[in-house]
Design a protein around this nucleic acid. Structure first.
Length: 707
DNA sequence: GTAGGGTTAG
């Protein structure tokens, strides 16, 4: 290559020469650009053109292979570039996720073109630039591309306008998207569903589901000429909407047209659709069909695990992961797979599985991925190891709103309100925009700290300032805030005046406060109200009978029990889990089956004796059985979490915390007993109950004895 | 030799 300067016009001319030469039995072109440089050629112009095309091909090949630095070196070394050189490199950047690089190349191209003879962007280049904007949701730059398209007339190319539709919808500019979309010919006219698919997927990602459904209904008129991508897009929409009926209709259409599900994209979307609609068995059937047809990949496996996770089948998710890893079976897991598996562990509160997986994560090199980091925070936090969760959070190179939310709500669940608010302040400091979930965590932190005024300020001002409309969860937090502060009348007034449709959970928050603060009259009214909404709400019966018991209203206790029996409502039996050296031990109340039974009961008796010396009084009033006081005390002793604590103290080294999970809310008697046990035995005991975490240390619980 | 729409996480 000798550095002759050729305009794009002359490049086209020489291209024609090359074609002529070929037709005249010219020697075949050299295999590589390097070879081209040493080849003896007939004319200089032809050599340049050959080199140009060959170098472009190489750039394309390198870029397709993800070797962007090699592609870039070639590009930078070119004495002359045409529009394809720019286009190939930009597309390479885009497909490797380096959209910013693609865009900066685009602006260099425009700058260079200002001084001819450098080529100007054509429809290929512009399409790639617009797609790059879509990818990183760069609306402003996308609009600049739109202006450029209008100025140059490139907007008449369908690829350009489709890319613009996608860009606007992905950037939440619904009006902008529809303005272009509606100016295009309807898909029925030409069977081209690119624009429909673009706008549907863009709208879907931004949560404009009704608008997306409208476009889908219009597209359905041309269902006869749908291609697999259109099917995948629409099924994806049905999954998003959790609209089983519509999805089944689309699935029928697919079957009618046969073999549509051979495609791994369509197949995985089917699995996802059935999973999101709660049909795990159908999801599994779709997945099995993919395996049978050998069109599986890491996404189809991960999607199936997700279907299990989202429907509460956590063990099944873990089993499928094991199956995937067995030799010759499935594809290699990726960062999404690990995130799903970690979240299954989180739901099982399985610190053992989770810790083992963390080792796997570190070895696999996926540890730096955002989704994996977020899943690790979630797993550690739900397994009770909030410090490990924070260690992961602090070590993350990149964080998104989910990372911050996980850390904030993690601290809140652990009752660490100050820590949660500190993280929130840092979040604002670095310019991350809080969302709906963030404020649920922040308001929960306010509950633990008793910050009533701050809570109202956040609800009424801060949220609006930050662009989030308060919803039921936020209003429920305010009820919790007033309740915890003992302002029960204010809480009731707030509930009666707030512009929101309350659910059973919200009313139960108030009822629970009535129980704690011994406000019997209000409690009775609230309980009646809840039972009108849902006559089978077990939690309400339990709270109500506890309330009667505390007020020594035994007639009421009997009445509640009779009511429960009449409606065939059973209190869920208390179960506690504890993990020791890799195996899980399960305890139910009055457990008589554990091999270490004698040891456990001896230890428990010793502990109870010690804590009685520091003020523990068994809360026999809370026992609802019709028996003598002595036996009531015995019932209390054998609650599952007390057995688990005794077992933990025997079997877990004294420096390690004891982690216990309980299926229902801890009773008050166990709470005060375990609090004192943490003191007399000098142990850290962490219990996760149905509501929250209780971290007992030195005779104090992180919940401040209110839960 | 280059360009547009589809799957998995929180």
């Amino acid at each position: 290559m000798r550095g002759q300067k050729t305009t794009s016009t002359s490049a086209r001319t020489s291209n024609a020469c090359y074609t002529l030469l070929l037709n005249n039995n010219a020697p075949p072109p050299p295999a590589t650009a390097a070879a081209a440089a040493t080849t003896t050629t007939t004319t200089t112009t032809t050599t340049t053109t050959q080199n140009l095309i060959q170098t472009n091909t190489l750039i394309h090949l390198y870029a397709k292979d993800g070797r962007l630095s090699s592609a870039r070196r070639l590009f930078d070394g070119m004495p002359e570039r045409n529009v394809v050189s720019w286009s190939a490199l930009m597309a390479g950047y885009l497909h490797s996720g380096l959209s910013t690089e693609a865009l900066s190349l685009f602006s260099s191209m425009i700058k260079a073109a200002a001084h001819a003879p450098s080529p100007r962007p054509n429809e290929y280049v512009l399409t790639t630039a617009i797609s790059s904007c879509s990818h990183i949701r760069a609306l402003e730059q996308g609009k600049q591309c739109h202006t450029y398209a209008l100025k140059t007339g490139l907007d008449s190319h369908s690829h350009v306008s489709n890319a613009l539709v996608h860009m606007y919808s992905r950037c939440s500019d619904v009006d902008g998207a529809f303005r272009i979309f509606e100016s295009l010919p309807p898909p029925r006219a030409n069977g081209d569903f690119f624009a429909s698919n673009s706008i549907i997927s863009g709208l879907m990602e931004c949560g404009y589901l009704d608008e997306a459904l409208g476009v889908a209904r219009e597209a359905a008129k041309g269902v006869g000429s749908w291609d697999p991508v259109t099917f995948a897009t629409i099924i994806g929409l049905c999954a998003c909407l959790k609209n089983l009926k519509l999805g089944l209709q689309v699935h029928c259409q697919m079957l009618k047209r046969r073999c549509m599900d051979l495609n791994v994209y369509v197949g995985s979307t089917m699995v996802d659709f059935y999973g999101k609609c709660g049909r795990v068995a159908s999801a599994r059937t779709s997945f099995e069909r993919l395996l049978l047809l050998r069109v599986q990949n890491v996404v189809s496996w991960t999607t199936m695990m997700t279907a299990y996770l989202q429907n509460g089948f956590f063990e099944e998710a873990l089993n499928l992961f094991a199956e995937m890893q067995s030799p010759s079976n499935g594809p290699r897991p990726n960062e999404f797979t690990l995130a799903v598996v970690l979240n299954s562990c989180a739901s099982l509160s399985s610190l053992r599985h989770g810790d083992a997986l963390n080792a796997h994560v570190e070895k696999s090199g996926f540890g730096a991925h955002l989704v994996v980091g977020n899943a690790l925070i979630n797993m550690y936090s739900k397994s009770g190891s909030i410090n490990d969760a924070h260690r992961v959070f602090a070590g993350m190179l990149h964080r998104d709103v989910v990372s911050w939310n996980s850390m904030i709500s993690g601290y809140s669940h652990h009752g660490l309100g100050n820590e949660a608010l500190e993280v929130f302040k840092n979040m604002l400091r670095v310019g991350e925009v809080p969302n709906y979930v963030t404020f649920v965590g922040v308001l929960s932190a306010c509950i633990h700290l008793g910050l009533v005024n701050d809570g109202f300020y956040i609800l009424n001002h801060l949220m609006k300032e930050m662009g989030t409309t308060p919803g039921l969860e936020h209003y429920t937090c305010i009820v919790g805030l007033l309740s915890r502060a003992g302002l029960l009348e204010e809480a009731e007034n707030f509930m009666r005046s707030a512009p929101i449709g309350w659910d059973v959970v919200a009313w139960r928050t108030l009822l629970s406060a009535c129980q704690v603060h011994r406000n019997f009259g209000l409690g009775k009214r609230v309980a009646d109200l809840i039972l009108e909404l849902d006559p089978n709400d077990v939690g309400t019966y339990v709270l109500l009978s506890n309330m009667y018991a505390k007020a020594r209203r035994w007639d009421g206790v009997v009445r509640v029990r009779r009511l429960m029996r009449g409606r065939d409502i059973k209190k869920e039996p208390g179960v506690s889990w504890i993990q020791v050296r890799g195996s899980t031990h399960v305890f139910v109340s009055e457990d008589k089956k554990h091999p270490q039974l004698t040891l456990i009961y001896e230890k428990l008796a010793e502990l109870l004796m010690k804590i009685k010396l520091v003020g523990y009084v068994p809360d026999i009033a809370s026992v609802l059985h019709d028996v003598e006081d002595e036996q009531k005390e015995e019932y209390l002793q054998y609650h599952s979490e007390k057995l688990a604590v005794a077992f933990g103290i025997i079997n877990i080294p004294s420096v390690a915390p004891i982690h216990i999970i309980k299926n229902i809310r801890m009773c008050e008697d166990c709470h005060s007993a375990v609090r004192l046990i943490s003191h007399v035995s000098n142990r850290k005991i962490i219990i996760r109950d149905a509501n929250r975490f209780h971290c007992f240390e030195g005779g104090v619980c992180s919940c401040g004895d209110y839960w």
